[in-house]
Nucleic acid binder design. Structure first.
Lengths: 182, 182
DNA sequence: CAACAGAGCTGGACGATGTCCAATATGTGG
DNA sequence: CCACATATTGGACATCGTCCAGCTCTGTTG
């Protein structure tokens, strides 16, 4: 059922992921779904966490933790872009809450610590990184935005833009996690 | 009508902003609205841009452009938090497209240029800043997210978190707009 | 001041959607 | 072979965005 939902989402888009459509795809009456899932909301929550399982985490003992953070976020970005219709949902739900999301958070915190970012700042940095990554995926996955430029980015440009900002962000974080600069 | 919509949104939330509810508030039949607005989508687009008018821009000749950028984004963040229900909509729509959004974009580009960030990088930086600001507002305006910590941030903490990340980001941008570090 | 054009408004409807209740089919353990 | 739990279904309800055709009121014009 989750698989069918994902399939529907990938091929027909979020707006086509309706309980009736999902039921039809499973050759089942719409009501039947409610024997297996409490809500459409619950269904989507399950979907969100399942997708996060695809994110590739670097080995925890990678030599340069900053590189590890970059890899992790870049992988999350890639995975999010594979399911563009889910991205707005992540934002509306403020991320995911399931076990896979938990795992990624733990890994990130560990890498941050190894990069010299200790506790109070680490939680903040995690939030910032999540915000930036999901936000970037949101802006890359769909129509352009109202920047001054009318130039529309293609996927490669979006990815480069994301990587640039991530580099800026990580540089700022590890260089000066707590002190106010200037 | 826009005012009524905004009022409804502020007091009853996005999910209560329905064409029928809006019509009732205006003592009018639901269909009447369609004489003034093409879609609910168009209505919301108008709303989004109207809200951006509240963002306070620093004087363009502020002595330190980095401070100006910080002020601008912080003001945008504040304004977004005044209308928490609109924030997911901004994300779903990837920002706004109206004249006010345009104006803020232009100001930001100008400040970036004065901070030494020139064109190819400036457009990227603008995107990054928008992503980060709206994303932060999204995460601050509603339930917590799946960080490793179960600690829920209060508004002040969220604002501080946002300011920290913004500082990190601006530091990274102005310090090294193009070169890869390390 | 009267007639008319046009804008604003409305009644009613359509199709879609999420969800629920009560009844039925299905299959398994005794 | 039967009773009972589980899965499934038919049908319905409320709500939503939206549209069509017609009515009403207003302001302008001759």
């Amino acid at each position: 059922m989750l698989a069918a939902a994902r399939d529907l989402l990938t091929h027909r888009g979020l707006q086509a992921l309706t309980m009736r459509a999902l039921a039809e795809r499973l050759d089942v009456a719409p009501n039947t779904l409610y024997s297996h899932v409490a809500n459409k909301t619950a269904l989507i929550d399950d979907l969100l966490d399942e997708v996060l399982a695809e994110v590739q985490a670097p080995t925890p003992d990678i030599e340069d933790p900053t590189v590890g953070l970059h890899q992790l976020m870049a992988s999350a970005y890639d995975v999010l872009l594979v399911h563009p219709d889910l991205v707005p949902v992540y934002l509306a739900r403020q991320g995911a809450r399931g076990p896979h999301a938990q795992r990624l958070g733990d890994i990130t915190i560990a890498l941050l610590r190894r990069a010299g970012v200790v506790e109070p700042a680490a939680a903040e940095a995690l939030r910032v990184l999540i915000i930036y990554t999901i936000g970037s995926a949101a802006f890359a996955s769909r129509p352009p935005l109202a920047t001054g430029t009318e130039h529309r980015l293609n996927p490669d440009e979006s990815a480069a833009n994301f990587a640039n900002g991530l580099r800026w962000l990580l540089a700022g974080i590890v260089q000066d996690p707590t002190q106010v600069r200037r």
